[in-house]
Amino acid sequence: MELIEVSGVSKSYGGVVANKQVSLKVPRGRITGLIGPNGSGKTTLFNSIVGYHPIDEGSIMFEGKEISHLRVQEIARLGLLRTFQQTRIYSKMDCIKNMLISVPHRTATFRDMFRPYSPELTDKAEHLLEFVGLYAKRRLISGDLSFGQQKLLEFAMALMSEPEVLLLDEPTAGINPTLINGLIDRLKRANEEFGITLFVIEHNMRVIMNLAENIYCIAHGEMLAEGTPKQIQNDQRVIDAYLGAH
């Protein structure tokens, strides 16, 4: 069964059509890519999936259940999590606290609000910070970290909340080339070792071709092509879209 199934989704802002009849599938346990020129509607599609805004038409299924009418928090609690293009962390708290507050809220009851954090959770937070290479900086205020480190922290926070699927909006934008290789490696490990399905928007072609098993390309809000990295690289429509022939 597909984990996420988007069919015929349209979304417009006033007169601007951001997504038109977009359909795609994100299979469980895989890494799926989404590419397209600037302004082609990739982030709009992400926002539609996570319930950030209502869609005009179409359907979005998660684990076989319609989620297009649910609100952001409800979708997040199902285990469908996103990271942000501009990177969003809790900037006045230290890294450990950023991690601790990211525990899964799926089953949180009213009384859970007043429970302390167990040593096991602190332990897990520290190990995850080490996984992304931020262990030494765990007591620093996260807003003082570099942009690249904040991206890594955001990724670690996402792992802390044990998602079924992670929607990553340009995970490598603004990160230096050495760090990018490390990040690709960690994304792959998150996928292989912990079984987290990934759905990634990416502008860096080298990264997405390396990472994804299946890639969708949208342009002008419409689905243009779908295929393996090799097929996409050789697709004349994709090349035209990026070079502006469209």
Binding site: V50, Q73, R88, Y90, K92, L100, I101, P104, R106, P116
Partner: peptide, 29 residues
């Protein structure tokens, strides 16, 4: 109160409420 999960959750709402929602925190509660 501030040493429990509640303390961190309201700090998270202060720093970025939209992020807190996206992470599934019961912000209204």
């Amino acid at each position: 109160l501030y040493s429990t999960r509640f303390g961190l959750a309201i700090n998270a709402i202060r720093d970025d409420e939209e992020k807190a929602e996206a992470m599934g925190i019961h912000t209204k509660r």
